[in-house]
């Protein structure tokens, strides 16, 4: 399970980068980001760039899947795995 601080950082990054009118503290770890925040391909691209820049990781082409971006939990687990 990814740590809470990392999840909070990811939520803040998403709200900030997507210019969302939302409170990161109120985002649930397992809520569906695509549906609840109307995330489209442009937003998804921003999230990828944000994760790479802020957590110093690199996405591989084969890593891209809708599931990966579905929840904060999934993103946090991915970041932890990439950071070793």
């Amino acid at each position: 399970m990814a740590d809470e601080q990392l999840k909070q950082q990811i939520k803040e990054m998403i709200v900030d980068r997507l210019f969302l009118d939302a409170d990161p503290a109120e985002m649930a770890d397992d809520e569906n980001l695509m549906e609840n925040y109307e995330i489209d391909s442009v937003n998804l691209f921003e999230i990828v760039v944000g994760l790479e820049e802020e957590f110093d990781i690199s996405f591989e082409d084969e890593d891209f899947s809708v599931d990966l971006f579905a929840t904060v939990n999934n993103l946090a687990e991915y970041v932890e795995k990439k950071r070793g």
Binding site: S41, F45, F59, E62, F64, S65
Partner: peptide
């Protein structure tokens, strides 16, 4: 990468299988 993500999301929004779309 933008093209990859767009292809993946287009399939997702169309209710299709997204496996391999990005690649």
């Amino acid at each position: 990468r933008r093209s990859m993500i767009k292809a993946m999301m287009t399939r997702y929004e169309g209710g299709e299988d997204t496996e391999g779309a990005a690649l």
